[in-house]
Amino acid sequence: MKKTLIFGNSGAGKSTLAKQLSQRENLPHLDLDTLAWQASMPPTRKPLLESANLIHDFTRNNNNWVIEGCYADLLEVALPKANEIIFLNLPINLCIENARKRPWEPHKYESKAAQDKNLDMLIDWISQYTTRTDTFSESAHFKLYQEFSGIKKMLTENMLI
């Protein structure tokens, strides 16, 4: 059974890699962005327990899977069930470059224009990765990586695996 978690900074390529693995190995794919946020303006996080229950449902209903996101608090929910993790620890400049090239994500934005409206905010967010101390930070991701005892990979450049 393959149960893979992919995490890292925004723009690191988590969704791209998860989609590739999902298609190549016929794995159900869960993007944590789809269950982490309430449908509100401004966006606010769902209660952790609500998101955790959705993750438990997904992992219980699928024997194999790939889950990706930047939320260390949500990744910790699935971590005990994972047998592989991939930490996309790309340099910030590559994450920014990837964010600029990001195709439209219709499951997150109503249009490419709406997505692009958030690009400056996203680039600022990406730039703070190494200095933040929250659940989205490099330090939170390193902690997940260091504590995991299964198969683990850390990628530091754009590549396919």
Results as ranks from 00 to 15, higher is better:
N9Y: 05
K14C: 02
S15W: 01
T16V: 12
L17M: 11
Q20A: 12
Q20H: 13
Q23L: 15
R24L: 14
E25K: 11
E25W: 10
N26C: 11
N26V: 09
L27P: 00
L27M: 08
D33V: 08
T34I: 10
L35C: 02
W37I: 08
S40A: 15
S40Q: 14
P42G: 03
P42M: 00
P43F: 12
R45T: 08
R45L: 10
K46F: 04
E50Q: 14
S51D: 00
A52I: 08
I55A: 02
T59P: 10
T59H: 05
N62C: 06
W65G: 02
W65Y: 04
W65R: 09
V66L: 03
E68D: 15
G69I: 06
Y71F: 12
A72Y: 01
L74T: 00
E76N: 13
V77Y: 04
A78Y: 06
A78Q: 04
P80H: 06
A82N: 06
N83C: 01
I85V: 10
I85Y: 03
I85P: 10
N89E: 13
N89H: 07
C95R: 05
A99K: 08
A99I: 07
K101W: 09
P103H: 07
W104T: 03
H107T: 13
K112E: 15
K117I: 08
K117W: 06
L119Y: 12
D120L: 12
Q128T: 12
T130E: 15
T130P: 05
R132H: 08
T135H: 00
F136Q: 00
S137I: 04
S137G: 06
E138M: 11
A140K: 04
F142Y: 13
F142I: 07
F142P: 04
F142Q: 10
F142S: 02
Y145K: 01
S149Q: 10
S149F: 09
K152Y: 02
L155H: 08
E157W: 12
N158R: 05
N158Y: 09
N158M: 03
M159L: 15
M159I: 13
